[in-house]
């Protein structure tokens, strides 16, 4: 039911954990299933230099957050904001239809972390 890439990211998730004194962090819940994800980002000169996540969620939630963290690491805030859950799912060779909503968790968690960062560091 899951692609090999999903299985790989599920079995060996990248960037699991928390960042002490993160520049921004966001926790979101999935309205559909009740699962939860927390994302921390470290930003230097407008670039996401580090990102870590934790999740209480299914295999698709783990795999999409793992993939999403890899995709935003080293990117600018603008680039990270442009990342969609569809792009993440595609990078994983697709998700079963009932599991598409899980990939939203990762996208929303990244957005929440960035929002938190922007609140703490108002541009000016």
């Amino acid at each position: 039911m899951y692609s090999e890439k999903v299985m790989d990211h599920f079995a060996n998730p990248r960037n699991v954990g928390e960042i002490e004194g993160a520049s921004g962090s966001g926790t979101v819940g999935n309205a559909k299933c009740g699962d939860i994800m927390k994302m921390d980002i470290q930003v230097e000169n407008g670039i996401i230099v580090d990102v870590k996540f934790k999740t209480f969620g299914c295999a698709a939630a783990v795999a999409t957050s793992s993939m999403a963290t890899e995709m935003v690491k080293g990117k600018t805030i603008e680039e990270a904001l442009a990342l969609t859950n569809k792009a993440v799912a595609e990078a994983l060779d697709g998700l079963p239809p009932v599991k598409m909503h899980c990939s939203l968790l990762a996208e929303e968690a990244i957005h929440a972390a960035i929002e938190d960062y922007q609140k703490k560091h108002p541009q000016g």
């Binding site: 599920f10 079995a11 699962d35 209480f56 969620g57 299914c58 295999a59 939630a61 783990v62």
Partner: peptide, 14 residues
């Protein structure tokens, strides 16, 4: 507690 069922099942399967 603190875990989600599918993740446990899939780890067990692995």
């Amino acid at each position: 507690r603190y875990l989600e069922g599918e993740s446990i099942l899939m780890r067990l399967d692995l």
